[in-house]
């Protein structure tokens, strides 16, 4: 299958995912969110780091629509800037995880043998562990911060992409057109890159899209433990972490970043479901 037709196919499917009511709302929200994250410095009504101790823990009211935190910083501005941190960390992490997972899974599925068994043993091992535990261990090893959070998320979801890609490749390898290509004497790299991967990639991309949602939750959780973004960098998780001390005094500091996480993840899931329907790959996701 030529790459160009895959591209057209993907564009058509994304269009179809947007065409349903749910898909339009969820997808529209995500597009808006990405825009907000990109334009954060221009959209945010206040400087996210500007402190005003005279106006600390103020309830939501004009001009601080979502209230202020313990340092009198504007919660709305911090949520807007937090979108930047949360989205970029999660998206980067999943991109790394997906690339590495596709390479590992494709190699394991294609070459088989000892290599496959070795990779899959490790993958199954990490697969059975809760992602938060894997991420916690990793962050503990290389220390807190956004970089280690990114890699921790990438490692936590590596097993998922490896399993899924391998399952696709193993299934495709049995197809007649691949056998024919092998018999025609094509090189393994050619078969993998030109024939197997283009056919295997759709479910991996959809799972990647869904994983961005999980990544946001994981980033928020690590941030909540104080292991992610360090002050004063705003991230949804870190905001809630510092907010716990003021839980009784100013609950809005915790409520709004949480709402941001929840709504984003729900939108990602709804849109992902629409994509699965549009691409008609529900069956292919079950195997892994």
């Amino acid at each position: 299958m030529a790459v160009r037709s895959l591209d057209a196919f993907a564009r058509m499917s994304i269009g179809r995912a947007f065409s349903s009511g749910v898909g339009l709302v969820a997808g529209g929200f995500l597009v808006l969110l990405v825009l907000v994250a990109l334009l954060a410095p221009w959209i945010a009504p206040f400087d996210y780091a500007a402190q005003n101790l005279m106006n600390a823990n103020a309830a939501p009211a004009w001009p601080h629509l979502l209230g202020t935190d313990e340092f009198g910083r504007d919660v709305l501005s911090r949520v807007i800037h937090g979108a930047r941190t949360s989205l970029s960390v999660s998206a980067t992490a999943i991109a790394i995880s997906m690339t590495a997972g596709m390479a590992l899974g494709a190699a394991a599925g294609y070459f088989g043998g000892f290599f496959e068994r070795a990779v899959m043993t490790v993958v199954d091992l990490t697969w059975s562990f809760p992602d938060i535990l894997i991420a916690l261990i990793f962050v503990a090893i290389i220390g807190p911060g956004l970089t280690s959070t990114t890699f921790a998320i990438a490692i936590a979801y590596l097993a998922q992409f490896t399993r899924l890609t391998r399952a696709q490749i193993v299934r495709l390898k049995r197809e007649t057109f691949i056998e024919a290509t092998i018999n025609l004497g094509a090189k393994p790299t050619h078969i993998l890159l030109r024939h197997l991967m283009p056919n295997a990639i759709a479910p991996v991309i959809v799972v990647g899209m869904l994983a961005i949602g999980d990544g946001i939750v994981l980033e928020a959780t690590l941030g909540f433990f104080g292991l992610g973004a360090q002050p004063p960098t705003p991230s949804w998780g870190a905001m809630m972490s510092s907010g716990t001390a003021q839980l009784f005094l100013s609950p809005w500091v915790i409520i709004f970043p949480g709402v941001a996480v929840a709504v984003t993840v729900i939108a990602v899931n709804l849109f992902g479901d629409e994509l699965i329907r549009a691409l008609d790959i529900r069956d292919r996701l079950r195997g892994a």
């Binding site: 949602g213 939750v217 928020a220 959780t221 909540f224 809630m240 716990t244 839980l247 915790i254 409520i255 949480g258 996480v261 929840a262 993840v265 729900i266 899931n269 709804l270």
Partner: peptide, 14 residues
């Protein structure tokens, strides 16, 4: 959908 997406610690705080 809510059960599988809402972060546990946030639910706990709420």
């Amino acid at each position: 959908l809510l059960g599988s997406t809402v972060p546990g610690f946030w639910l706990a705080l709420l």
